[in-house]
Nucleic acid binder design. Structure first.
Length: 358
RNA sequence: UGGGGUGUCGCCAAGCGGUAAGGCACGGGAUUUUGAUUCCCGCAUUCGUAGGUUCAAAUCCUGCCACCCCAG
């Protein structure tokens, strides 16, 4: 009997993943991972209730479970970079790094050290361990939940021995299974927010780690229209939170269109969103999944932000990355986010958006 | 100080005698394993202020106050 270690977060998805593997005849072990240590007002660790759910589910499934602490690794390999990016005025995506640096890194190694033949997660995506020796990352059947965007940085060695039990299941089906089997996590609300840090007042959270410097908000014409609370608190394309009211004679909304770190100025546009549209971007830190690094230009589809529909692009490899030319101008492409490439059902990998060309 | 104009929600802004539109902002929610975007809901018993006319006023009249513009 093959042994598989399932990364369990205490949510429905990983619970059902464990359940399915158990039904498929694997020797299943649940592994809960603590990546962020913080106590709430009453002194209780905020991850305790999640681990409690993991225990309930594992008990019901009659499988052993363990807990590991990767808080130190998370802090050094994900969170630090996250803060550096904000300090640089960019908009990082820590969850992409969390997968490469933690879940498919130390976590995977630890799981295998337990004697596992496979490791599995509750990600909505699929994998094809092809006879050609390559591991192809596939989009989830449930397009609305597909999470390959967050896995664009995982490497071939990291994908070895990996199973994604939820590949073909719509979210509703996962819920249905959980309810049908009486899993404690069946009705649990989907988690959102930065994984392992969770939902919280983002501004206050960031301010605990980075100094904020307020400054002027200007229009592209140079008119002063307000004051910002620190450039790190804004992202390109953002509307809410800018705190600027009506403008004489016009009824549009204000959008963040540019950040000038050197002068600590936030630029906004009223009504007109055209300044947000760009024609290409430079991507670095490329990781290719299941294909050799391209040497010549090719066309494919790409997501420039999670939950965006795929867009047609041309990828032109360069010395240290690629120029990605958009077939149609794209709105609010943001430095620090990832450009993730697709070829039909396959996710080809991706890289960090380093510079946007308007 | 003369002459003119304006004062309606934090910001724009309708209304012009019949019992306070709308937009933005803001708050809440839905969606979402990245602060967004998008969507839904909420948001002035009150119209600078004090009186008066009227069945009825933010809308008419009068005093006062504030601000703006032109004169000087």
């Amino acid at each position: 009997m093959k042994t598989v270690v399932v990364g369990m977060s205490g949510g429905v998805d990983s619970s059902v993943a464990a359940l399915l593997l158990k039904e498929q005849g694997y020797n299943v072990i649940g592994l809960f991972m603590l990546n962020w240590e913080e106590n709430d007002a009453s002194g209780a660790c905020t991850a305790d209730s999640d681990y409690a759910d993991v225990r309930r589910v594992c008990s019901l499934l009659d499988i052993p479970y363990f807990s590991v602490n990767f808080a130190k690794e998370y802090s050094e390999r994900v969170f630090r970079h996250f803060l550096d990016e904000y300090a640089a005025g960019r908009t990082p995506n820590p969850d992409v790094l969390c997968n490469r640096e933690i879940k498919f890194g130390p976590f995977r190694e630890y799981a295998l050290s337990l004697g596992a033949d496979y490791i599995a997660t509750g990600h909505y995506c699929g994998i094809d361990h092809n006879a050609d020796g390559r591991h192809y990352l596939l989009k989830a059947a449930d397009g609305g939940k597909d999470q390959t965007y967050f896995l664009n940085q995982v490497t071939q060695p990291q994908l070895e021995n990996v199973l994604f039990p939820l590949a073909d299941l719509p979210k509703e089906e996962v819920r249905r299974i959980a309810v049908g089997r009486g899993l404690a996590t069946a009705q649990k609300k989907d988690s959102t927010g930065i994984c392992f840090i969770g939902e919280r007042n983002f501004r206050k959270f960031l301010m605990e780690y980075l100094p904020a410097q307020s400054g002027k908000i200007l229009t592209l014409d140079g008119e002063e229209v307000g004051e910002h609370v620190g450039l790190m608190h804004y992202t390109i394309g953002q509307r809410r939170g800018v705190n600027i009211g009506g403008k004489s004679g016009e009824s549009g909304r204000w959008f963040v269109v540019k950040k000038d770190l050197a002068n600590n100025i936030l630029y906004v546009s009223h009504g007109d969103e055209s300044p947000l549209y760009s024609k290409s971007c430079l991507v670095t830190g490329l990781n290719w999944i299941g294909i050799d690094p391209p040497k010549s230009p090719f066309e494919c589809t790409a997501k420039l932000r999670y939950r965006q529909s795929e867009q047609r692009v041309t990828v032109m490899p360069t010395e240290d990355g690629a120029d990605v030319i958009f077939a149609d101008r794209q709105r609010a492409v943001t430095e620090g986010q990832y450009a993730v490439f697709y070829d039909e059902a396959r996710c080809l990998g991706g890289g960090v958006i380093d510079k946007v060309i308007y």
